[in-house]
Design a protein around this nucleic acid. Structure first.
Lengths: 351, 351
DNA sequence: CTGAAAGCGCTTACAG
DNA sequence: CTGAAAGCGCTTACAG
């Protein structure tokens, strides 16, 4: 038998029992008053809500999580926050989750080990789902999540056979668009500054880009690839290496993300004294707002963040827990070209 | 009497009872095995840890939070993430919290109402503390947190009489340094691009800056102030307004944060065709890495993020809950000048 | 050092 | 529509 003191003197915690006492109802009634759609008379609910307000009562989600096995918390694992794209992603998830009355437990990780570590931590919290942007994931960890019924969805990457669903932009299509734009502007030699060599995102953009070039008869030797580590600084360095290279700078450089494209532009202009797009044309990928600023005016392909974020949340099945994740709809989401000033010429009449 | 089935068939949840059964000990022992410093024989602990590993058992923090009233979760309320300074702040908090085995529940807010709303949400989660960066806070909400024993500390702002401790950079000192640098470079007329007019951060930087100028005999009419809304775009617009103003552009512009200083530079150079620092000198505040990039080379004052973050966490009293927040050590933390290229001249021999 | 048991603050069949 | 009570998975005096 559980004995409860209705009022613990000096206590700082107000529970549903306190509210029940004040409203003159049972504790179960208080619980129902706060559950939308629960079976309770409107007058009873009002009475209870009044009492709750008087006592500054707020239901304890920790306690309800324990019984319902739902915490209404979603974990978001973030990699490189220095790429503004991901801060926009964080913001979008924040907004969407707030709208759905869910909270975001955020983990920032650097190396792959840290991702597994983050997963171990969040496993303790009865998280409703995990969203992984960037960072690799051991299939063992995906397994641990699945055993506990925690859906994990990858944002902007996929890991074949991992059992985790991946929502992503049509990166390969985007790569093709950039290739197309460069060709149309008359470029004959090409450089790519690539991102995480283990991630599918960079690979897909590269392969779409190269494919389209090859289709158009560009010889493989006219397409060079430099690692840029996904960062601005990495891209600066990549351009210096291109410049030092026997073949010299290409006609066109594809920065696999906007941050790198911006680093490339700055290095070209302010370090090598060249003109963009006069001497070298440049395109990026993501369409971060920073790329639209006066000095950059970057031509790029926009990732449809909002749609991607919503698709990600949908696949979390937050409202019907237990539903298996639908792995069949693995369709990349297409973005669109944003024509600005770093590739000569205009948008073609109709893509 | 509580009856427990030792194994729930088909269950996906492994509890301390399952581990106890496998290890042949009581459930209390399992609990102790996972609590550092608990009274348990080393062999018993090893046996239990082995069993736990076999079962992929992870202690349920939700359950322990319920009993201990500690969740090991800290809430971080973030305002404008478009200012890279705050993404660095988020990263720093993430790292420090991970080191301390705490998780970060992140809320991104825009208007002031949203802050109160965020507080209402986090109140349900038995948060161990809340960190507020930017955004205003109603004293009523601070009160609700305090009633529940949840410490709240403001990062880089303070609200007198709010009862919430504020860790901040010595903004007024920083403003003075910038004024000093401008004066030394021979500027006679001055413009400021300000941030949130309700926040103390912008106000303090402004007042330090103006004070020093006045001390040096600069007439008040030679100091103008324009709202920049803390954003890059707002600063671009502010510069256009300065330019359209009867008095024209000043000799020197102080962007109250680096993002605004960068917006001002870009507008001056690429919109008005002027040279920085040739025609107008510029300084910022924060020392975000972006300001150090080739095209900017921004002279600024560095905020000691790491020290500020650590001080913030310290004041949360995470390890001695219940301790009242020490409100006496309210000392702003001093940063230091970073001399680059947007103010002519070099660092003085010794500041 | 160890175990039995109460309790943390909810939710939810179950019976009325 | 309402209440009594069991249970969620831990922690922690208490007694041994």
């Amino acid at each position: 038998m559980t004995k409860r003191k209705k009022y613990r003197e000096g206590s700082i915690r107000t529970t549903s029992f306190d509210v029940a006492a004040l409203a003159g109802v049972s504790q179960s009634a208080v619980s129902r008053a706060f559950k939308p759609g629960a079976s309770i008379a409107p007058e009873t609910r009002d009475k209870i809500l009044d009492a709750a307000r008087k006592l500054n009562y707020v239901p304890n989600s920790i306690a309800s999580s324990l019984t319902t096995h739902r915490s209404n918390i979603v974990a978001l694992i973030l990699g490189d926050l220095h790429n503004p794209f991901y801060t926009h992603v964080l913001e979008a998830f924040g907004r969407e989750m707030q709208d759905r009355d869910r909270q975001l437990l955020v983990f920032t990780v650097n190396e792959d080990l840290a991702t597994d570590d983050a997963i171990m931590r969040l496993l303790r919290y009865q998280i409703d789902g995990v969203i992984l942007t960037s960072a690799q994931l051991s299939t063992q960890m995906v397994g641990m999540c699945h055993n506990r019924g925690i859906p994990v969805v990858l944002f902007n990457r996929y890991i074949p056979q991992s059992g985790a669903f991946g929502v992503r932009c049509d990166n390969s299509w985007g790569g093709r668009q950039i290739a197309e734009a460069f060709l149309r502007a008359g470029a004959k030699t090409f450089g790519m500054i690539t991102g995480d060599p283990n991630g599918t995102t960079s690979k897909d953009r590269v392969s779409g880009f190269v494919e389209r070039l090859i289709e158009n008869g560009v010889p493989r030797t006219a397409i060079r690839s430099f690692e840029g580590n996904s960062t601005y600084e990495g891209a600066c360095d990549a351009v210096r290496r291109m410049h030092a290279d026997a073949d010299g700078l290409p006609d066109a450089i594809f920065g696999i993300n906007d941050t790198m494209a911006m680093g490339a532009m700055d290095t070209l202009r302010h370090h090598l004294g060249l003109s963009v797009p006069g001497d070298v044309m440049i395109a990026g990928f993501d369409d971060i707002p920073e790329g639209a600023r006066l000095p950059y005016q970057l031509t790029t392909v926009r990732q449809p963040i909002k749609r991607m974020v919503r698709a990600t949340i949908e696949h979390l099945n937050l409202d019907n827990p237990g539903q298996p994740i639908d792995l069949t709809h693995d369709q990349p989401i297409r973005g669109h070209m944003v024509w600005r000033k770093t590739v000569p010429g205009d948008a073609p009449p109709e893509v």
